[in-house]
Amino acid sequence: MSDSTEEPLFSVRDLVIDLYTEQVSVRAVDGVSLDVYPGEVLAVVGESGSGKTVMTLGPLGLLPEGVSVDIRGYAECSGQSLLARSGKELARLRGENFGIIFQDPISALNPMKKVGPQLASQAMRLRAVSKAQARVIALELLQRTGIPDPEGRYNCYPHEMSGGMLQRVMIALALAGNPKILIADEPTTALDATVQAQILELLQDIQRKENIAIVLITHDISVVAQMADRVAVLYAGRVAEYGTMEDVLTRPIHPYTKGLLSSVPDFRGQRTEPVTGIPGSPPDQSSLLPGCRFAERCPAAQHQCREKRPALVEMADVNKAHRVACPIAVSEGWGQSNDS
């Protein structure tokens, strides 16, 4: 954890990302500003298509080919701007600063290459060391990510390892370049529950011991509850609510956050209200319309919601770091009366 007086490692300001194809133009990210501080876990949550992946990977130039991307606003990492850079410069910045963990390790690792050499070649490239040194680093990385018998596993092919082991290798690979920030794009979605817990523990361990910041992209609220320091809730490319994990998960203000939380089933049966979900479906992001994007589905929506896009405002009286993009919920205390 860290306080916001520190310099952010990675920050985006008023980030707008438009995706263009021959058929549609989609505003995937619509004016997002976020900071990631050293050693903190920022969880980015939202439905599929809310822009959480595009927002994080877009400034790094990692969006799929075949889509024309237009990024505006500002994005920087350790004081260096990420936008308007050549592919080569961006690749260097990515290598120096970021490690990425994908959802599906089996397709993120080269099936034709043994895992050890895969790690070693990455370490060789990113740390500029000799082959022998790279091997030592690779073994150490395997050790660090909790893989038993690293020497023996070094010469395994990806298909010879289990999903949980592979995810550990994937994390080792992400750490090969000594990153300052780990981006974990739904790191546990493809794993079963017990392995999921182990992987989260490992990530947390790494984050605490080495002070690496983690951007956790997920739609799994329980993962957020276990891992995150801060949470940004994204809806239709905009931040609906931002704050510490405790604030957002236990004292949600924005109607969307409340809806999202009430959509999570609780297996212990302690929940008093039934699982409700949110009626309707996410809006069409291909046209730009005034007003709150959530208004169509919002139980608290009023006339003014359809006229102006709500700004993200600080909850002055409660907690400076807690920001909500809903004037109705903030001013009328709609949240409080409906809470508890």
Binding site: E22, V67, D70, S287
Partner: peptide, 19 residues
């Protein structure tokens, strides 16, 4: 799959800016 041509992208960007 391939991105749009520069010209086409320019047109779409302008349209988006108007919107």
């Amino acid at each position: 799959p391939k991105g749009l041509s520069k010209r086409r992208l320019g047109i779409l960007k302008k349209r988006r800016a108007r919107e």
